[in-house]
């Protein structure tokens, strides 16, 4: 890498200029909180770390520990602590979210144990909450999102309106990671689907 210099411009999200906060849809004027709340989580930091079959155990153990899980993460599980979160999205691939590779997750893992790639700009992160969050997601996702089947901490990749997306249920709500180029198109279908319940964009 060339000598790094302070970045002087703001990141511009895929929804820039198309994202309007407020209450919309049916009963937009109702007093209680909206049935669906949508929020774009800006300035995503997402690094993918990929282990090798023979280093998997070590990498999984270290990375899981770095983000608060004593056991190595199982398929489509996640762990979070103050430092960030880690999601196991493929057998050998983990996503580190909300942290930078300069931190402990990376420090603990030897160079020949895994490879890292920055995906921070590749996804648009939408947080969906509210009583009808799952109803909205299930308009598109063929996933079983019942409480008993998709608990806090669970992760699933699937297709939403023909686009491959990853859904993560964090403490905050349902986090949808959409490939950036499709973010606006999917945003549009999501708010169309949300309008019948009334939704708030924050």
């Amino acid at each position: 890498m060339a000598a790094s210099k302070q970045i002087q411009v703001e990141r511009q999200s895929a929804l820039h200029g198309h994202y309007e906060a407020g209450l919309f849809g049916l009963q937009a004027d109702r007093e209680q909180s909206a049935a669906i709340v949508l929020q774009e989580v800006l300035n995503l930091s997402l690094w993918q770390v990929a282990a090798w079959p023979d280093t998997y155990k070590s990498v999984a153990t270290k990375i899981s520990k770095a983000y608060g899980s004593k056991k190595p993460l199982g398929p489509n599980k996640s762990a979070s602590n103050a430092g960030g979160s880690v999601l196991r999205v493929e057998p050998l691939k983990f996503w580190v979210i909300g942290d930078t590779p300069a931190n402990k997750g990376k420090d603990a893992i030897a160079v020949d144990e895994a490879v890292w790639v920055d995906q921070s700009h590749s996804r648009t992160q939408l947080r969906i909450t509210g009583e009808h969050a799952v109803t909205l997601l299930n308009q598109f996702l063929p996933l079983d999102l019942r409480e008993s089947q998709f608990a806090v901490g669970d992760v699933a990749s699937s297709a939403l309106h023909h686009v491959g997306v990853t859904l993560w249920r964090s403490q905050e709500g349902y986090e949808l990671f959409i490939p950036r180029g499709f973010a606006l198109a999917l945003w549009e279908v999501l708010i169309e689907g949300a309008a019948q319940y009334g939704y708030e964009v924050i």
């Binding site: 079959p53 023979d54 190595p72 057998p91 050998l92």
Partner: peptide, 17 residues
């Protein structure tokens, strides 16, 4: 899984390889 080396990394349940 087609990749036998990767298949081995799959836990039966969370945490057990």
């Amino acid at each position: 899984l087609a990749h036998s080396g990767v298949e081995k990394t799959l836990p039966i349940s969370n945490g057990e390889a």
